[in-house]
Design a protein around this nucleic acid. Sequence first.
DNA 1: ATTCTCTTACTTAACGTCCGTTAAGGTGGG
DNA 2: CCCACCTTAACGGACGTTAAGTAAGAGAAT
Lengths: 200, 200
Amino acid sequence: MSNKKSAGNLNTALVILEKSIPLFAQSGYAGVSMRDISKVVGTSGAALYHHYPDKQGLYLAAMEHAFSDMALSIQSTLDIKGTPEERLVHFTTNFTDQMARSPELRILLQRELLDGDDERLKLLANLVFVKPFKVIKELARELGLDCDAHLLAISMAGLILFHFETESIRRYLPGGLKKHNDPKVIGKHVAKLLTGMLGK
Amino acid sequence: MSNKKSAGNLNTALVILEKSIPLFAQSGYAGVSMRDISKVVGTSGAALYHHYPDKQGLYLAAMEHAFSDMALSIQSTLDIKGTPEERLVHFTTNFTDQMARSPELRILLQRELLDGDDERLKLLANLVFVKPFKVIKELARELGLDCDAHLLAISMAGLILFHFETESIRRYLPGGLKKHNDPKVIGKHVAKLLTGMLGK
DNA sequence: ATTCTCTTACTTAACGTCCGTTAAGGTGGG
DNA sequence: CCCACCTTAACGGACGTTAAGTAAGAGAAT
């Protein structure tokens, strides 16, 4: 845990991160001003510069903080014993639950996929996704599917995440019901699709 | 074609839209200034206000222009005869191709899903997605799948789009290869997954 | 054919506001 | 005393937007 950067009170520095994360999730980097952040934190704008070098530095620290949470929570969906089929269903339902429970992190992820530079994306990949990705690829192999493990792992994540990504527009599409936003319904649907593929 | 709003030269008004679309795709609404737009169009900043009432109005017009293109191109992936299986593969491969061919529209879609207000999302749904969505739901029914047609249609789109959404980060994930960004490879992979589900 | 007028399509210059950032100073515990 | 932690006030610049003026062309009147 290298804390070379934070010069000030660790507590305030943390509060700044945790209060700014919802703002960045809602409005994106360019849509949030340092004054907006200082308002929700309850300090002056200048105080932010006591803890972080500039807006970019604050944003980067906020992303690291947010995504280190995400890494832990994703990891927990994969620490389980059982047959490959059981582990597949366990991952699907738990991952769906967690994405439903923390929409902020999901939205930050989407924003980073759109706007993140190479450095930030590399960090995000290593911090959050490389380990789970390896586990899922291994799982795919054990399931005996003959398609590319990388593509399959992406497909599994996409099946789940896309339902949440489209939550805002699905209510205007034919057949869109409230139950389609229920993580239980989504999780079951995805698990069914995936196990259906195995049955072949 | 109601052109109540455009008071000025239609040609310049169109050029403004078409030059501003790539900017909005790359940097988002808040990340693009009216001066940025005027620079790429080659006019003064004030000229933009001769054709559009304000930044929001220009943005809305740009989205309508961009997405009306998208509606046509998606429609074309569904105007085909054949068995349900043939139509499924045709849609999958063609939709994949088109998303690969126009990354700008794809990115604008992602941004609207993140930031679009209810009004814009409703417009986007009706303009682009309602008709294809109905066709895909009908296709799902013909294929005799016993799961919710709405969820299945979303899943199909998600399987394809998520590969593109993660293009920027997949190169940092294990097993990420250049070929995984090839629309032919992605299209084949998705078609295989989907027809695999039917085989059951 | 020339002049006059009116409209369209723009220009330059500026407005007030908000932005990221910093300078200068205060305050309270070691 | 000093240093971490915070304040108020301000800087220069970029922002969205507007006011005022100009160049060009179309149409009618002389």
